[in-house]
Design a protein around this nucleic acid. Sequence first.
DNA 1: CAGCTCACG
DNA 2: GACGTACGTGAGCTGT
Length: 944
Amino acid sequence: MAEKQHLYLVDGSSYIFRAYHRLPPLTNPEGTPVGAVYGYTTMLWKLAKDLHQADGPTHLAVILDKSGTSFRNELYDAYKANRPPAPEDLVPQFPLIRDATRAFSLSCIEEEGLEADDMIASYAREAARQGWDVTIVSSDKDLMQLVGPSAGGGYIDMLDTMKNQRIDVAEVVEKFGVQPELVGDVLALMGDSVDNVPGIRGVGPKTATKLIQDYGDLESALAAAETMKPSKMRERLLDEADMARLSRLLVELKQDCALPLPLESFRLTEIPPAPLADFLRTHGFSSLLRRIDATEGTSPPAPAATGGVDSAPTRAASAGDRQEAPVMPPVDRSLYTCIQSLPELDAFLARAFATRSVAVDTETSALDAMQADLTGVSLALGPNDACYIPLGHGGTDMFAEKPQQIPLDVALARLKPLLESDTVLKIGQNIKYDLNVLARYGITVFPVDDTMAMSFALNAGRSEEGIGGGHGMDEQAERHLGHTTIKFKDVCGTGRSAISFAEVPLDRATEYAAEDADVTWRLHSILGNQLHDEGGTRIYERVDRPLIPVLAQMERHGIKVDREQLARLSSEFAERIGGLEKEIHALAGSEFTIGSPKQLGDVLFDRLGYKGGRKGKSGQYSTDQSVLEKLAGQGAEIATKVLDWRQLAKLKSTYTDALQAAINPATGRVHTSYSLVGAQTGRLSSTDPNLQNIPARTEIGRRIREAFVAEPGNVLLAADYSQIELRLAAHMADVPSLKDAFAKGEDIHARTAEEMFGMVDRDTRARAKTINFAILYGISRWGLASRLGVEADEAQAMIDRYFERFPGIQRYIVATLEQVRECGYSETLFGRKTWFPRINAKNQAERQGSERAAINAPIQGTCADIIKRAMARMMPELRAAGLGHIRMLLQVHDELVFELPENDVDAARPVIARVMNDAAGPAIRLDVPLGVEIGTGKNWDAAH
DNA sequence: CAGCTCACG
DNA sequence: GACGTACGTGAGCTGT
């Protein structure tokens, strides 16, 4: 039987655009940018390598766009008219793409007057007609029309090499909600802003899919517009039907182009090495070059980087000059070693000392760094040069035979000098975790770099949704290395059947753990260069990096909570909750689950017939605080009771119960975990438990704060920045009258009231305060109106008045939005970037949401930068004052909490106040003074 | 796992 | 034409 032919058609042009944006900048020895070319070359390499593999190519051709116009421009002269020009450092790479293709001795097709898509479609159809399978190497959505079985017996699918994902009918249906044959109809409705395909205005992917699903195809949907209920969409479908038809022609792929070369000429053979080697040498792609040499037997394969552009581990951001961008060999797990004897360990450590830069990762028995036991340590010195040192493997069964391992204490004694050496940089992904684990074994790791914090300094706000915000190692490995890591759950499983890492067999554990260190090392090398290129060094080096050991220390300190006090509150709350429950059920006339908004809504608005129920998009009544307060105001007793019940239930479950459970049995204290990458603005976040949202605003809530206490003989000291965000707004927006008021120590809300209303009383001051906050958060007339309980018109008048009195504020807002629209990011005074990818979104709500966030981010972020700087300087300054024993425990955005002997309060106060007040300088000289209020007491509430 | 609600700055 | 309308978080609960 004849071999099944499989043609791979590479969409070269679209690949390099994507590669350009996703790969690090990189230049060849002559200084020509070659980042995208490198990506393209490795892709061809991988594809060609799969010759003889099941489902691999037997034939391969590259299709490129030829510059110039196509037949589509005759249909629609604006076609692709608003394409931005290619980036400056991509342009010189286009001809190199042809060189690269030639170097692989592959065919390259480009035809005047046709687009690559048409040529790809024509070749794909012809090959499939002859019974060949076809894989289109592209992620272009237009090409998805072709996917599926074809007349003649061939089958067409696609391969997205960036995401390493096959695109088959199922993926197309998932993306477009319709079969591939109807993709063109969907595209015609939604249009394409990049290609300037008009579509129907106001119709995006969601609506387009829905229309085609509902009516079957484009013409039916257009015809059905007549019968639709009156709406903007109906009008546009009617008015713009011809635009949709034109769009349909534009997205139609021409599948009968003349084929310049016969299919058979694309047959893939072993690549002749000589021209390829020449090309790789010219552009400094030495890792690929070595692989050719290796297969040719001219030089041994090199597992670790030893020279050329592959080398040079860099002290990321502190390096004065940008390092040559690394071209790294792909991850090869077979090269990792498992270290089970002392001589092996000593040999590796000796090399680590010589290298002066080592990626470190610890494997442990639990996620909580304060409770986790060490299971092993992995180290990496360069790409594929990584090891795993098992230390606690053997599982839980004491009779089971344990694998050979260096005894824990012996190994740690050898590791300690390396991990504590000033001259060896330790690189980690979220290294704060490893710092805390190792600190519990008596090792103070220093100095460190953190690839997670580096990623955040570069890309805050840039990622799509997801835990870790795109700064997790697995996501970074995909993004920067194009590498799919082994996942923890693949090694240990999930749920009930999960095993601990200690039970994982050593060969598997080594692959996983050493890969983490390897990948971390690689990321560090790439991120260091990017930080340098993109101006992220300042914020990372000066603000976030120094904070890592400080936060680790705070987490290890923890804070004491009075378990008995919490238990007393829990039972008191339980009793009151029970009482309220009975009363609520009696008022309702039946028993129901009060904690279920669904049931509560039904009871209040359907059964009891209260007015004012509003339903959200889920079709459910809202029962939130503002709704219940309205009902209570109308005399609904049940609403008052539910509000009380809610408050107590919240306090009990989230605080009095949960905090008792959070007490660490070994230390008797509660240890939170701070995240440096938790908030897009640069603020910290706190988890497990969250100690940044302990009740403070209500009387009853503050009783929970009273349970946070100092050790006997000590007190808690709370130091707050006073109105720091408003002060920063006054400085950043340059508002003379506000700056003046702060300089004179006046009541700022009163001053605002005076400016706005010409008089100060309780009412005008309260309104002024609301308006001040509205400004910080990005104002809308509706938001302000609902807060002030006035009409939107009146709120708008107040906003106008505010901008009139404080024109600097309006200038600041306009300038900030301009910069964000232009550059895509906002910046704090210290240069922290926050990205706003939705700032130019078509959807109004989405766009306006981004605008408000963008107005707020520089202010909130600058505040975060300042307190972080204060925290990094705090302990050295206290030590200098002979107060090194004071413990800094908590940070709550504008507040620091310390624990110290009662006798040291008087000495500590001025030091803490000075460090916090001076934290912006010397880098930034603020036009307004900062203000710090300090209180002390036996518990956190009393310290305020 | 999503949605609702609510604790904080 | 309806929606949602202040910025930034994390956590517990209900219900699918």
